[in-house]
């Protein structure tokens, strides 16, 4: 029975991925999609930098640290911004208005970029 079950489960998972994707693209506000595309960019950028460090060389190491740390830090800051401005999470962040979240994001980013440029050498 197992061989027969395998294709049907893969088809099921395919359809569930499709459902997930369509639900995302229909129900997510454009502002969050905007942030999500930025998150995707950061993730790809970090992966490529890490792959370069592992596969080719970590020289100059300070530049790798700065670049990789900036992607990680920016991802965290952006993800928390996304969580706080998401209307679905309003009950979670009652005291945090979207403006306050953006101010935090801007301050955090400036501090992060200060350290990143410090390391960049």
């Amino acid at each position: 029975m197992a061989p027969k079950a395998a294709p049907s489960s893969s088809a099921q998972s395919q359809s569930s991925v499709q459902t997930l994707w369509s639900a995302y693209s229909e129900q997510t506000p454009d502002r969050l999609k905007f942030i999500d595309s930025f998150l995707l960019f950061i993730m790809l950028s970090g992966v490529i930098q890490f792959a370069y460090c592992v596969l080719v060389t970590n020289y100059p190491f300070n530049a790798f640290l700065a670049g990789f740390a900036s992607t990680i830090g920016q991802f965290v800051l952006t993800a928390s911004l996304r969580a706080q401005v998401n209307p679905e999470n309003k009950s979670e962040f009652k005291d945090v208005s979207p403006e306050r979240a953006f101010a935090d994001f801007a301050l955090g980013s400036i501090v992060l970029h200060f350290f990143v440029f410090n390391f960049l050498g």
Binding site: F34, S37, L40, I42, L44, I48, Y52
Partner: peptide, 13 residues
Amino acid sequence: LALAPWLVPLVLW
């Protein structure tokens, strides 16, 4: 390759 991800936000935005 490292600059390529910039395409993602540029296209999606």
